[in-house]
Amino acid sequence: MGADWAARPGADEDTTVLRLAGRAVADYVHRPRLPAALSPRPYLHPVRTLGGLVVTELRPADHAHHLGVSMAVPDVAGVNFWGGRTYVRDQGPVALDNHGVQEHTGWLGPVPDGCAQELSWTREGRELLSERRAIRAHSLSDGAWALDFTSTLTNVSGADLSFGSPATNGRPGAGYGGFFWRAPKEGAADPRPEVFTATASGEDAVHGSTAEWLALAGQGWTLVFVGGDEETRRDPWFVRTGQYPGVGSSLAWERRLPLAAGAALSRRIVTVVADGRLDRPAAAALAALALEVAPS
């Protein structure tokens, strides 16, 4: 069944709601009003299972710059599009005035089962990147649906750029930057979410690994992240379950990712949003179904 995007009744015009079979499953804030230190950018929150469980978190106390589901990069030629402090080699995290903004510049033509937009990645009026983003949704079963997120970034700065991360700036293992999903932190009495791939289990084993899919299973919900193309499947997964629950696909895990003037890069993540705590066979089956139902 196809998805429907519409303005949220009674809300400002910068938020739209994604519905499947009449049920609201996600809010997309495409023009947020946020402090500069959070690197303002569009985000999805709340995202819900078909049963109504919220599986994203917005501006949590532990990381106020985590914004549900977003495309966030901590270092684009020194500009912070992630929010919060910047990791500086030999100094550690430093509060710098270097935050960028992702600005919605317009909607593109109709997209089946979703929306497509153009964005401008800027710092103090200078445009570094232009982005074409498509977000689609597909029903998979009575208890699961898929969120299809594709981002194509083009270097329009007039000079060569590169993407970095705290890891490339001297903090091993902190190669975050790209598509990122902040999941909700559950009660202190609940165990941390379980994370696994087809061949490995646990944060230590899957963090920094490459895998066609990765599952994060909480209390009553499971997210299955699937690389939607070969390029994305080569990116390592950034995973947290102990400090907080979050999963991302890393653009710059160990070394900076160059992007020549005028060149473009594209990444696609399809995320299964399911009710219930899935085991490995069930997660694998839904990962395969998601790519079958939502072909590129």
Rank of each mutant, 00 (worst) to 15 (best):
S201K: 15
V101K: 03
D75H: 09
D148Y: 11
P281Y: 09
V69T: 05
A215I: 02
R8W: 14
D14R: 05
L289E: 13
F196R: 11
G83W: 02
G170M: 14
T168P: 11
Y87N: 05
L129I: 04
A7V: 04
S209P: 02
V206F: 07
R182E: 00
S130A: 14
P245G: 07
A284M: 00
L291H: 04
R255L: 01
G170S: 13
G83A: 08
V206R: 13
S139C: 08
T56D: 09
W237Q: 07
R255I: 00
S201E: 13
H30G: 00
D229V: 11
Y176D: 06
G158T: 01
L128E: 04
G208E: 06
L34D: 02
M71Y: 13
P40R: 01
A288S: 14
W5H: 03
K185L: 11
V88W: 05
W145K: 01
R33T: 06
R256T: 15
A290D: 08
S39K: 02
T232Y: 12
A188Q: 08
V69M: 09
P60R: 13
G78A: 08
L251G: 04
A200R: 15
R19T: 14
R123H: 13
D190C: 04
E254G: 09
V47E: 00
E118K: 04
N80H: 02
A285S: 12
L44R: 07
S250I: 03
Y28R: 11
A146V: 15
E124F: 05
P236I: 10
D97T: 00
E292K: 09
T199Y: 10
W253C: 04
E127M: 01
R240N: 07
R48H: 10
R48E: 01
Y244S: 13
H104V: 00
V156W: 15
W181P: 01
V273I: 15
H207K: 12
M1Q: 10
E127L: 00
V272A: 12
G92E: 03
H63Q: 09
M71Q: 14
F163K: 12
A174V: 00
S162K: 06
L291Q: 15
G109R: 15
E13P: 06
A263K: 10
S141G: 12
Q243A: 13
F238G: 03
P46I: 05
V239K: 11
A7H: 12
A287S: 12
R126T: 15
A284P: 01
W121Q: 03
G52C: 11
H66E: 02
D279S: 13
R234P: 06
L153T: 05
L161G: 07
A137I: 02
T150L: 13
T232I: 09
E230V: 14
A11M: 05
A36G: 03
A64E: 09
N98T: 08
V226S: 13
A285G: 02
R8L: 14
E194Y: 00
D279E: 12
H65K: 05
N169S: 15
R126L: 13
S120G: 14
A215G: 05
R133I: 09
Q91G: 06
V29H: 04
T16Y: 00
C115L: 14
R171G: 07
A36Y: 05
V195Y: 01
A217S: 15
V47P: 03
S120P: 04
D90H: 12
W253Y: 11
A294H: 03
R182D: 00
